[in-house]
């Protein structure tokens, strides 16, 4: 069978897992084309106007896969990958939304709930429906899941060693650039690594001489320990991770500044933002929020990054002097 995987949302975190899993089960894996203006416009047409841009991108990707003539489109329902913490409501209702707003996709969605204790999502119990769909035995499915897990763990280890996520997903290996300034970049994977919607934001930062640190490059323990110690963690998995990374950056002397990149209308970030902004201010750590949506202008983004980095350079020089 031809299984389509949209190049959006958690593709940027779990693609190595999915790719191995479906290939091991004897399927051809088709990934949608990288986000483009036309594709996004198609997505916008089929979306509710107020929804965040990553969801519009996702819908565009699903439409793109339909054009490619795949048999099934994989849209799992991520419920929880940590005890007591769920995903953003849009993830929880994702298959429902797609199924009920795009008529052509009905009957072509492969979906199931993912509930796990950690971000290792390979537990067999989540995948039992695969046995009937792909006509495999329990043993074969378990073996495929294990292979997928190994591949994904390798990917995670490389991320933590500082290899570029966007290159790893394409099967290439390239280290993050070194730079004069060390910038903590906070953002969800689907905003950080979709070059179209963030207008090559990461490359531009590097060109301007920044060394980038993101949440998935941090040691998993830092994040887990932080979330465990929160009196009341946020309800959303990746928001908590950003919060953990954010406070880690605020308290790290070697981080020169923090950029929070967020989508227009992102609900969880509207709650997270003020916490980080207030506390970064109190600790005297430069903090900037960049907001992106389908109408963001490129020059506006560049101007703001440049200005921010210039200020950081000035600050660094005056700190040394």
């Amino acid at each position: 069978m031809k299984i389509g995987i949209p190049r959006s949302l958690l593709y940027y975190y779990y693609y190595p897992f999915w790719q191995t899993l479906f290939a091991e089960l004897g399927n051809e894996v088709v990934v949608s084309d990288p986000t483009s203006g036309d594709q996004l416009n198609e997505g916008v047409k089929e979306s509710v106007s107020e929804i965040c841009v990553p969801m519009k991108v996702h819908i565009g990707q699903v439409l793109n896969l339909l054009e490619k003539g795949v048999d099934l489109i994989y849209i799992p329902r991520f419920v929880s990958i940590r005890r007591g913490i769920t995903f953003c409501p849009k993830f929880l209702g994702l298959p429902d939304m797609i199924k009920n707003s795009i008529a052509a996709v009905r009957g072509k969605i492969l979906t199931h709930e993912i509930r796990a204790k950690t971000d290792d999502i390979s537990a067999y119990k989540n995948y039992t429906i695969f046995r009937d769909i792909f006509r495999v035995s329990k043993g074969e499915l378990k073996k495929a899941l294990e292979a997928a897990r190994q591949n994904w763990l390798k990917f995670r280890a490389l991320q933590q060693e500082g290899y570029k996520t966007e290159k790893l997903l394409l099967g290439e290996k390239e280290k993050r650039e070194e730079g004069l300034l060390k910038i903590g970049v906070l953002g969800y994977v689907y905003n950080l690594y979709d070059r179209f919607i963030n207008m090559d934001f990461l490359d531009r930062l590097e060109e301007l001489g920044a060394k980038i640190v993101t949440f998935e490059m941090l040691d998993g323990d830092i994040v887990d320990r932080f979330i465990k110690n929160l009196r009341k963690p946020m309800f959303w998995e990746f928001t908590n991770r950003l919060m953990a990374a954010g406070y880690h950056f605020i308290n790290s002397a070697d981080i020169d500044g923090i950029i929070h990149i967020t989508a227009f209308g992102c609900g969880p970030d509207s709650i997270l933002g003020p916490f980080l902004e207030i506390d970064a201010g109190q600790k005297n750590k430069p903090f900037m929020t960049l907001r992106i949506d389908e109408q963001t202008g490129e020059s506006h983004l560049i101007t703001r990054i440049e200005a921010f980095l210039d200020l950081l350079k000035l600050k660094k020089r005056s700190d040394i002097a």
Binding site: V48, K90, S101, G265
Partner: peptide
């Protein structure tokens, strides 16, 4: 309310409903 997280999902299926 504008950009309400859960109700956006229900809004997306109003046409079909």
């Amino acid at each position: 309310p504008f950009a309400c997280l859960p109700e956006l999902i229900s809004e997306s299926m109003l046409e079909k409903l």
